[in-house]
Design a protein around this nucleic acid. Structure first.
Length: 570
DNA sequence: GCCGTTTTCGGCCCGACTGTTTTCAGTCG
């Protein structure tokens, strides 16, 4: 079983218990465990096999949950979950996801009207039967119908790059409101998560500002969900929900901190505060009724003796302990990037000529770049060996004209089904750097896929493994592969792992980036650009790298050309 | 169900907004 399978099961148990009206803290225990497992870089299975370790060592997992993990590991099933499913229809979980409905109302709908599916619910709402229930009125019934519509459209979470398309213009529009003092987007957007559920915008004003009105009247707004004096919520055209909150200046730092999250991080810090007799909320840090901090985030952290922690790290994945020990990483920045090691020209499926790519990279101040066109196995757009020879001659000619940037000869060599590379050794030998990647035949077992990739990594010419898990955010799950073993082989064979900066890939994901770092494996952040504009995706790669705790030294393409080439030597 | 530099029991983060209600439960983040 994969970690995500354990996590889903614990999540489902949490949902079902909540529907039963169980102790909310018990519900939370399951959800915490789910999250811990889902964001663990080591696999639960290997933890169980390891004699010196046990799931019980994980935070939030005690005897009971460890036993359930063991049972799942042994049998692939869990008796407790089966019982719960008998007691509560699991399909109620979907109903609980409809905005406006939670566990209590879902249970009420089931018990009073025998509603167990979203389809049942839609029928009942259309017939006006929800009105029979205490606590339900016309408005709520309408909201449920609308929620069902959205549920069926399945917008899901927005990729960070998609959220940017709305966030930036909205931010500029709000900034122009009269009397605005501070304005900032908090939440997962500020933490630079790969996907965003909604946008949380915070503002302080000098009183009487019309910003709230301006907000709900924005031309981007489709629906107004709620409007109050300090908080309003809207849904934008395109589906993204945005909350705007007005906070007093003396609370701005506390509010920014609070709404940046993550929830897990906040809860952990609040726990520390509680031990010191402090209460932390979005208005500040309080001792009794006395405000002791709140104007800035630094102040808030200082009350619990912590330095300011970069938002990208605030996931309760060790950043609090690191901060306490003075061991926070000095996170890599975009300016430290010296080159881009994956891009496609019009030799394969890119839109641009070599000349255009070279001049675009020079404009960005890069000192090196690698042209990495596809190889023949990609029938649609692969480049034949004879064509690579021609391309490399052309690169030689271009190189003579540009002494300020090194154009590295390369290719994104396909890893064939059996783990061989899709080019002969003679062609590979002409390259300065060899990027390898899986593009087809995802339908393998975990063991097969791992063997396939690690075999390719052991090829003496291989340098960089591109998009190691093959996932496409919101579109395609990663293929099953043992990332721990990939990292181990990368370490042994001196292979660099790519963090693909395409906003829909961001592969490796943050926890695996961190795993690679811990193993001493260097990461390459590459845009995999197919157009000139996509060269600017580098910043999304940097975001993800920072979420994976990477420092300048962990990222291969922050090095000078000479040092990079030395790093690639076998 | 987890957890413990006051604890192995009794806590567990906390407030805004909504809708349907005459004082608040449910939802949400």
């Amino acid at each position: 079983m994969e970690n995500i399978d354990y996590a889903r099961i614990f999540d489902e148990i949490g949902d079902l218990l909540e529907l039963q009206g169980a102790n909310p803290f018990r519900v939370r225990a399951y959800r915490n465990a789910s999250r811990t497992i889902a964001t663990l870089s080591q696999s639960i299975d290997s933890l169980i096999m390891d004699e010196d370790a046990s799931p019980e060592d994980l935070p939030g997992i005690g005897k009971d949950l460890a036993a359930k993990i063991e049972e799942l590991h042994q049998t692939g099933e869990l008796a407790f979950l089966a019982e719960l499913r008998e007691e509560v229809p699991p399909s109620l979980i979907q109903i609980m996801r409809i905005p406006g409905l939670g566990p209590k109302r879902a249970k009420q709908l089931w018990e009073a009207l025998d509603i167990t599916s979203v389809d049942d619910l839609e029928e009942a709402a259309k017939d006006g039967r929800l009105l029979e229930l205490p606590g339900f009125g016309e408005i709520l019934q309408g909201r449920v119908l609308k929620g069902i519509e959205q549920f069926k459209a399945r917008v899901g979470r927005f990729k960070l790059s998609e959220a940017d398309r709305y966030a930036r213009p909205l931010f500029e529009y709000l900034k122009q409101a009269e009397g605005v003092v501070d304005l900032q987007i908090a939440g997962s957007y500020r933490r630079r998560c790969e996907t965003i559920g909604d946008l949380d915008i915070l503002a302080t004003t000098d009183g009487g500002s019309p910003i709230m009105d301006r907000f709900i009247k924005s031309p981007l707004v489709e629906d107004i969900i709620a409007k109050g004096p300090t908080k309003s919520s809207v849904r934008l055209k395109g589906g993204l929900q945005v909350d705007l909150r007005l906070v007093p200046e003396e609370s701005y730092g506390a509010a920014l901190y609070y709404f940046t999250g993550s929830k897990a991080h906040n809860i952990a810090v609040r726990g520390i505060a509680r031990q010191r007799g402090l209460k932390v909320n979005e208005y500040g840090v309080f001792r009794g009724d006395d405000l002791v901090a709140g104007a800035s985030e630094e102040e808030v952290f200082a009350t619990v003796d912590l330095p300011w922690i970069p938002p990208e790290l605030r996931e309760d994945r060790g950043e609090i302990e690191a901060a306490r020990a003075g061991m926070l990483p000095k996170l890599v920045t975009l300016r430290e990037i010296r080159g881009d090691l994956q891009m496609h020209s019009n030799y394969s499926d890119g839109s641009n000529t070599l000349e255009e790519l070279v001049s675009a990279c020079r404009e960005r101040g890069y000192k090196y770049m690698a042209i990495t066109d596809h190889t023949p196995a990609l029938a649609m757009n692969g480049v034949q060996p004879s064509e690579f020879k021609k391309q490399y001659k052309k690169i030689d000619a271009l190189q003579k004209r540009h002494s300020d940037i090194r154009i590295l000869k390369s290719a994104e060599v396909d890893i064939l089904e059996d783990g061989r590379l899709d080019l002969d050794d003679e062609t590979l030998a002409m390259m300065d750097v060899v990027v390898i990647a899986v593009h087809t035949r995802f339908n393998m077992t975990r063991a097969q896929m791992t063997r396939r990739i690690t075999r390719a990594m052991r090829h003496p010419r291989a340098n960089i493994l591109a998009h190691p898990t093959g996932r496409l955010i919101n579109r395609r799950e990663p293929y099953p592969v043992d990332v721990e073993e990939i990292v181990e082989v990368a370490s042994g064979e001196n292979i660099l792992l790519e963090l693909n900066a395409q906003p829909h890939r961001l592969d490796l994901r943050d926890i695996y980036v961190q795993l690679a770092k811990q193993a001493g494996v260097k990461i390459v952040i590459s845009t995999d650009a197919h157009t000139l504009a996509e060269l600017d995706h580098m910043r999304y790669g940097i975001d993800q790298a920072r979420r994976g705790w990477l420092e300048k030294g962990d990222v291969a393409n922050t090095r000078t050309l000479a040092r990079l080439l030395r790093l690639l030597e076998k």
